[in-house]
Design a protein around this nucleic acid. Structure first.
Length: 271
DNA sequence: CGAGAGTCCTGAAGGC
DNA sequence: TGCCTTCAGGACTCTC
């Protein structure tokens, strides 16, 4: 599942191939994504030149001069570049065809992803409105989390996953970060001290940065080995380790269901 | 208004 | 062997 590090890795991987390239066509084989791919996407993109690719949370923005292609990978989506687009297979829903035979292909079995068009020079879209701050920015720190969490009667785990607070912290990294910070996932967000939030903010940054490095290396292995986009190189402390001994203290890792999501934690290390 | 539940979708995995 | 159920996941949207 693409998390922030993988979205950023995708962005960096696409940049050298797409920058300054002209779009000569768009093939939409299945428009049924999270929101329907707009019927005029091809009309808007064709003839444009890709001037930049930026990221906001888990959204990618392709700067096309007169507007932006807004993309989200959902949980099973991928964007890949080809020097020559091969014959499409199942779930290869959209191709952005470039000059000189190149192309970017959007593949998404579960169709939770998004491809939309933003007209004009402003990166404004309802989906981007109200997004929280970037976790790797200097603005994201313990003081910010402390301020945001006051009077919140929600568990810290779903609070940390709330994209209106901070973007890009999905289920994996929320569990991992809370473990690193030694905070029990069921603690009330509004009752956690400033000092503990300092530790948590640092843990989020460290977890994401570490995954960012692993994301890059696993993408290299992706080509070399078996196509698994996976986090097999990301040595999780708790994620998907239920019943296994905690890497720090040996206590079996437990799970708890929070807001329709499984949280993994060490009942001994996290208080 | 805040907090929690429901929803979209497909494929993998487990039960019988 | 094969069908059925459950689960996974991001994030919008609905409900209380």
């Amino acid at each position: 599942m693409p998390e922030l590090p993988e979205v950023e890795t995708t962005r960096l991987g696409l940049l050298p191939h797409l920058l300054k390239r002209r779009i000569t066509g768009v093939a939409v084989r299945d428009a049924r994504l999270r929101w329907p791919v707009p019927a005029d996407l091809a009309k808007n993109l064709t003839g444009q030149r890709i001037d930049d690719i930026t990221r906001r949370g888990k959204y990618l923005l392709f700067d096309c001069g007169s507007g932006f292609l807004l993309a989200h990978l959902g949980m099973s989506g991928s964007l890949r570049y080809f020097d020559a687009l091969p014959a499409p297979q199942k779930h290869d829903h959209v191709d952005i065809v470039l000059e000189k035979k190149g192309g970017m292909r959007f593949t998404d079995p579960r169709r939770f992803g998004t491809l939309l068009w933003i007209d004009g020079r402003q990166q404004c879209h309802p989906l981007l409105d109200g997004l929280g701050i970037e976790p790797l920015s200097a603005d994201f720190n313990g003081a910010y989390l402390f301020a945001q969490s006051r009077n919140k009667r929600v568990n810290i785990k779903p609070f940390l996953m709330d994209a209106h607070v901070v973007v890009g912290v999905g289920n994996i990294y929320a569990s991992e970060s809370l473990f690193r910070a030694g905070i029990h996932p069921a603690r009330m967000a509004g009752r956690i001290s400033a000092a503990r939030y300092d530790k948590l903010a640092a843990a989020v940054k460290e977890t994401l940065q570490r995954a960012l490095k692993a994301g890059g290396s696993s993408l290299r292995d992706y080509v070399r080995v078996n196509g698994d986009p996976g986090y097999f190189q990301f040595d999780a402390f708790v994620y998907e380790r239920v019943g296994l001994p905690c890497r720090i203290c040996g206590t079996p890792i437990k799970t708890v269901r929070q807001s329709q999501r499984t949280t993994f934690y060490c009942p001994s290390c996290q208080k």
